[in-house]
């Protein structure tokens, strides 16, 4: 007679393991803290610092940092801190949303083309096509065709936001798709997939339960790079006049506007530059930590 040992307590959920692993990644913990801080600042900063970022105070133009204006003012007397808060909302919103869109598209196409041999050829040629498309002329055409209908339907700011996010999203999914496809192709030949197939798992279940969790780590890395890419693309577009209306600050626009004053007012370049760098860096570190935590082989280390 053998006594089956009964578990004394409920088994730990795998998310607890992930959290444990993540907690031990010092860089990721610090990065999460910084990222949450930035998120908090741009979401609630408006209430703590209630100056209107669009208000031109002609009596206080070109001021250096002071108590009244902790980050100084620009050439029209607009408060730099208020602009940073307002700009951060747009930049982070564009960055996160565009990243999610491009991640979704990239993963979807990557998994399909890696898993279904018949779709592989055509999907990869589409990917090549998008890679070969010159980005700026494409965006110009999109802006020309869709700006007016979208502005009419959602208002100028929301319309441009949708246009911008989709423009960045659909022009930056290709690297993710390629990486995911490669990983899926390798996974498909593994024994556990074979055994899952032998018990009759449907392709949908197979992808959701066995493939996706295993390609999580390259997707995470893509995501972190994607946010940075989206914020930078947005600033380039704003600079060309294709982006948000000119009185609508974003970090990229603030940076571009200040570039001319690099020598006279270096702080105007430093604030948005620092904000972009910190956001991108912290997201990168969070991605790094998550990848380590999500990978079961690394976790058991």
């Amino acid at each position: 007679m053998t006594d089956t040992a009964q578990p004394t307590k409920a088994p730990r959920s795998q998310w607890w393991d992930i959290w444990d692993q993540f907690r031990h990644h010092k860089g990721a913990m610090l990065a999460s803290f910084v990222f949450l801080l930035i998120l908090f600042a741009v979401l609630f900063g408006k209430f703590l610092w209630p100056i209107d970022p669009a208000y031109n105070d002609f009596g206080a133009m070109d001021q250096r940092p002071s108590l009244a204006h902790p980050l100084g003012t620009d050439g029209l007397g607009r408060d730099a801190l208020a602009q940073m808060i307002q700009g951060g909302r747009t930049s982070i919103a564009v960055g996160l949303t565009a990243m999610l869109l491009s991640l979704f598209l990239g993963t979807f196409i990557g998994v399909l083309s890696g898993y279904f041999r018949r779709l592989d050829g055509i999907l990869m040629r589409i990917t090549d096509l998008f890679l070969a498309l010159p980005l700026l002329p494409l965006l110009l055409v999109m802006m020309m065709l869709f700006r007016e209908p979208l502005s009419a339907a959602f208002g100028p700011e929301m319309g441009i936001f949708i246009l911008m996010v989709s423009a960045i999203g659909i022009t930056s999914w290709m690297p993710t798709a390629r990486i995911v496809r490669g990983d899926v192709l390798a996974l498909k030949e593994r024994e556990f997939i074979l055994s899952a197939q032998s018990i009759g798992t449907t392709p949908f279940k197979m992808i959701m339960r066995h493939i996706l969790p295993n390609v999580m780590s390259p997707i995470m890395v893509s995501a972190t790079l994607g946010i940075a890419n989206a914020i930078i693309t947005e600033s380039a577009l704003s600079f060309l006049g294709l982006g948000f209306p000119p009185d609508f600050p974003t970090w990229g626009r603030l940076l571009n506007d200040a570039a001319e004053y690099l020598q006279i007012y270096p702080e105007r370049v430093i604030w948005p530059g620092l904000a972009i760098s910190l956001t991108v860096l912290s997201v990168n570190y969070i991605g790094d930590g998550l990848r380590d935590a999500l990978d079961p082989r690394l976790r058991k280390r």
């Binding site: 208000y55 031109n56 029209l76 600079f239 000119p246 506007d257």
Partner: peptide, 14 residues
Amino acid sequence: TNAVRQKYQAAIKQ
């Protein structure tokens, strides 16, 4: 698109 023109726009809008 021109830095000076955007300043003009912002001020005139106000």
